[in-house]
Amino acid sequence: MNIFRLTGDLSHLAAIIILLLKIWKSRSCAGISGKSQILFAIVFTTRYLDLLSTFISLYNSCMKVIYIGCAYATVYMIYMKFRATYDGNHDSFRVEFLVVPVGGLAVLINHDFSFMEILWTFSIYLESVAILPQLFMISKTGEAETITTHYLFCLGLYRALYIFNWVWRFYFEGFFDLIAIVAGVVQTILYCDFFYLYVTKVLKGKKLSLPA
């Protein structure tokens, strides 16, 4: 465990909780892509199946349970509890265009052709693109609530911190995992455009709105 890992995990946790609180407090999931949230629930489910087979640490198990629990709670709030506020018309990204190629890639490029390993690889690839329906939704409506941008910023920051973590682990532990690194870099790149808007607009007190 290094400082980048820890702050990365906490940033990820902050993002998840910000989103849950936003929906809960405003009693609305307007502007949130339910499809992205379903993809994240799939990501956590397929990656953390090892909860049932291997124990790593209390920290590890607790975080996994929290991530999975929050992911399903978010999906429940969007599609059940606050369904009336869900903006389905703008959430029109075709997720099969992500899930099918990502599934194929996980079967083709993995460390070991076993069930658990392919699921792990699938979750890594899927996570790197799971935010696309959300970004697509923002580009379609042309704006995002400030709280939604904080959520996205924390989520992007988590991935950027994980990259620093991998650099650290490569130097000090001689460890690297090419699949995780490539997927992590792709994921971070997807946020670059958003980071720019966040710094130039949201941090200066303006609402995030895109030019028409």
Binding site: M63, Y67, Y162, N165, F175
Partner: peptide, 10 residues
Amino acid sequence: PSRECRKDEL
């Protein structure tokens, strides 16, 4: 060994 190393990551 890399597979064992990464198992502690979330």
